[in-house]
């Protein structure tokens, strides 16, 4: 009796689920036809920037709706390949195996080494940074600082900032000895701000902004070049990356217009407003 009831219930379940799914499909079909909709997914670093650009674009083109979804660079690439999104946000240059995609750069970003504001160490050479990150130097004393253990803050595997950092210092992930592994930029800044012995690396614009508003962090120069958005804009800062919108094949009309808008000087204020470096600045 009991079992039969469950069987009954289960027999009904697929039919019911099917009906719900059908209804959902029909309804979603209806709502999607209204107006032009552009879906952009990808890097959570770029998502706030593209969101504000999209807002500006929407207000200039009534009827157009742009859905920006965050979820990481690789999601952007995967979604564009599967056709789930027309544009993908990728916070690095495309790799050779991603030749099926075309990239349009909308802004530049640099990566700065940061330490706590109270850390007296003024600058570190490339060799010293490598020694710190590979665990050969474990105390600030060895690089001219106080007698305190170094807390090495590294980014999680796969993040484009990590890849850029590694390739600049010709390092390999297995060689790195980290004490704290972080995800987003803000986590890096908060970690270093709360730990006088820490060293980490984050987006230049964000770090610059945070340092200016009183967060206790300090940006270290890199290879003698001051870490600042100005230097990234000038193009002489050694650690910088493009923020890209990628697409596959010929983009649709709305996507094409959006790409043109996102690369135009009109969005410069929006780009600097999100602490990135606009393109034509250099």
């Amino acid at each position: 009796m009991l079992l039969r009831g469950i069987c009954d219930g289960l027999k009904r379940a697929p039919r019911l689920a099917g009906a719900i799914a059908m209804a959902a499909l029909i309804l979603s079909g209806c709502s999607r036809d209204a107006g032009d909709r552009l879906v952009i997914t990808g890097s959570s670093t770029i998502a706030p920037l593209v969101t504000v650009i999209a807002q500006a674009f929407e207000s200039a083109h009534p009827g157009v709706k742009i859905d920006v979804q965050a979820g990481g660079s690789s999601r952007g690439i995967a979604d564009v390949r599967q056709g789930l999104a027309e544009l993908g946000m990728v916070s690095r240059a495309l790799k050779p195996e991603e030749g099926d995609l075309a990239a349009a750069t909308i802004a530049q970003d640099g990566i700065a080494m940061i330490v706590h504001r109270d850390n007296p160490v003024g600058a570190l050479t490339g060799g010293q940074i490598v020694a710190i990150y590979t665990g050969k130097v474990r105390n600030w004393q060895e690089v001219g600082g106080p007698d305190a253990p170094i807390t090495v803050v590294n980014k999680a595997e796969g993040r484009s900032t990590l890849e850029l950092f590694l390739s600049h210092f010709k390092l390999d992930t297995p060689a790195i000895r980290a004490d704290v592994v972080i995800g987003d930029n803000q986590q890096g800044i908060k970690t270093v701000a709360g730990n006088p012995q820490a060293i980490g690396y984050v987006s230049v614009g964000t770090a610059e902004f945070e340092a200016r508003r009183g967060t206790p962090i300090r940006l270290l120069p890199l290879d003698g070049v001051e870490a600042s958005t100005a230097h990234v804009a000038r193009g002489d800062f050694p650690l910088s990356r493009p923020l890209n919108l990628v697409h596959r094949g010929e983009p649709g009309r709305v996507a094409r217009e959006f790409l043109a808008f996102a690369a135009s000087p009109e969005v410069h204020d929006l780009v600097t407003g999100q602490y990135f470096v606009p393109l034509a600045g250099r």
């Binding site: 004490d179 986590q187 701000a193 730990n195 012995q197």
Partner: peptide
């Protein structure tokens, strides 16, 4: 935890996290 607890623990046993 990140802005209060971890810095507190860091004083006692780095890295706190």
């Amino acid at each position: 935890g990140l802005v209060v607890l971890v810095p507190l623990l860091n004083r006692w046993a780095p890295p706190g996290a």
